[in-house]
Design a protein around this nucleic acid. Structure first.
Lengths: 338, 338
DNA sequence: TTGAAAGCGCTACCAC
DNA sequence: GTGGTAGCGCTTTCAA
């Protein structure tokens, strides 16, 4: 089989007219007579003609493809981000080129390079947790419309959509305080994460609001690996002011922490709150008392909308430097059924 | 900013040589002198030249892109399939165009169409659960190399990789029998699903092996919605031969079933086994006693490998109809910690 | 109302 | 060794 695809040229030949006439007819150009228009369309239909998009891409310089780079898809968080992106993308006739960095900055860079090569019209990225060399990223944002989602680097002059963790953290800590906890520990992510900073910020603000003093040693940074999380918990349990509640960096950390607490005879009753509000958390035996919702679907949607916008305005007014989008959604604490 | 990208032509002009020379130099063609080769490369480097892939795509007729269509990413199963696909794809210099059908046959078709337009070199697809019109799918497999993964339609002459559920089901039922269960119910998926047929097959075979008679009324088909699952469980609980164990279609169904059982005072002790072995299941309060592992990552890997193979052989020997790949992995029962 | 031709950026064949 | 040129499939401008 494998007959080669029908081209515009083929149609032209069969109808004994020019390729340009065919092209125009197919696009309902008004300069083409109704008669030939009909003929052309009929023939196209018969031969099951499909325009070769790659030719159109080359011609137009656009690919109607956007690149999406995410750290991984193993939890439901990022898949939901994709859903938001994809739904908006499809509505606007874009397709999604997906790449997972697997939290590896090298692979992330390789994906960026590969997507650039494929001439994607724009990129949505949630950076890997170990990405520190922002200069390498910056190179791309100069040449391709780029929007950062959820995990945003500490860079100037970027478009991004993120969820403000400060408000959620304040709610989380306030919730604990209201439950009469007075010593609250925190197992935070790496210090350099923007996300860690936000959580710490919210934590401090909440304490301040309740006129409690902030004790640095109750906040422990870790790389979120199983081991370091355990170390962090142990440190808190051995603390001279042993906490009765813990704020975890995210649901996964929370579950690890609770699993550990449950394995120790006497610390089962420590309350844990966390971030992400993953659906699976609700059923887990190691579920926290509450979790801060970060609206991944919405973030994806918004991110894609921003990207569409900058891709469009770039075409129209390349000279006027458009302002940078900084969309920040507020996070909210969700209580989980006990 | 927005200076237009450097082309081969620009390099040629600056160096006062021909475009063909530049092209060849860039490809290390042996017919080009070392001197000019160096010059060209240096200039390319300086100008930060990036070949325009869309031009190459048009020229070569290949896009080095494969389309992946999955029902959804909400559970960890399909994300793991993607991982397998992506890892192999990247190694072979392919990128992944992703689309979720959301279990909607119309959207699935639209995605196929859109990917065809984008001239993907091949397609990996796991069909939506409501896809019944296979003719519409068949149209695509004639023109684009296509491999079905995990959810395969009941069609002839297709390439696929799937997991044989029969062996896993036999193991699951045998496990229950060995635990002295003598009346085993089954909450199966829709009757038309191939996956449902396999499970039923395994169920019957296991009973046969143990010389127990097969009672049709203990197997209930449902559409796997929350409501129908509940109805199915109720029917089983009201059965004159009330089962002491249930085989569920997959982990999600199992969790729904167990949630329901736990809400009824007296049926908590009914044992449930299921399929998928999702990581989250292990921590769930509603976790089954055991689950059949279906190796999603491996399926993705194999699927991509097959696709690569047929894409390659198609180029080389289009005339000889290659045999159809039918890779079937055996499934295995995994016990979950109580 | 239609057609010819240039051109998008690149490759590859054939002359020189 | 190097350069000219045709062509991948399509759009678009300009002439007829």
């Amino acid at each position: 089989m494998e007959k080669k695809p029908i081209t515009i040229k083929e149609i032209a030949k069969r109808l004994n007219i020019s390729v340009s006439a065919v092209s125009k007819a197919l696009h309902d150009d008004k300069s083409i007579g109704l008669r030939t228009k009909m003929q052309v369309k009929k023939m196209a239909e018969e031969l099951n003609y499909q325009p070769n998009q790659t030719a159109i891409f080359l011609q137009s310089g656009k690919t109607h493809t956007i690149g999406v780079i995410l750290p991984h898809l193993s939890e439901t968080f990022f898949p939901q981000v994709i859903c938001g992106i994809e739904d908006v993308a499809i509505k606007n006739n874009y397709v999604v080129l997906l790449g997972q960095s697997n939290e590896d900055p090298e692979r992330e860079l390789m994906l960026l390079e590969s997507m650039k090569k494929h001439r994607v019209d724009g990129i949505l990225i949630s950076i890997s947790k170990d990405t520190t060399n922002y200069d390498r990223l910056a190179k791309y944002k100069e040449t391709i419309p780029m929007v950062f989602v959820d995990r945003i680097p500490d860079m100037k002059e970027i478009h991004y959509v993120a969820c403000n963790m400060v408000s959620g953290t304040i709610q989380a800590v306030s919730y604990l305080l209201q439950k009469k906890h007075r010593v609250i520990g925190m197992v935070n992510g790496p210090e350099k994460f923007f996300a860690s900073k936000e959580r710490l910020d919210g934590y401090r603000k909440a304490l301040e609001k309740h006129r409690l003093k902030y004790d640095t040693s109750l906040v422990i940074n870790c790389d979120l690996s199983r081991d370091e999380i355990q170390e962090a918990v142990k440190a808190l349990l051995n603390h001279k002011r042993k906490p009765t509640a813990i704020v975890a960096f995210h649901d996964n950390a929370a579950m690890e922490i609770i699993e550990y607490l449950m394995s120790t005879k006497k610390d089962k009753q420590i309350t844990v709150v966390s971030f992400a509000n993953l659906p699976m958390t609700a059923h887990s035996i190691f579920r926290p008392a509450a979790s801060v919702e970060q609206y991944p679907y919405l973030q994806g949607q918004k991110g894609m909308e921003i990207l569409l916008d900058i891709m469009n305005t770039k075409q129209i007014a390349a000279e006027s430097p458009s302002p940078y989008y900084k969309i920040i959604l507020d996070s909210h604490l969700k209580l989980l059924k006990p």
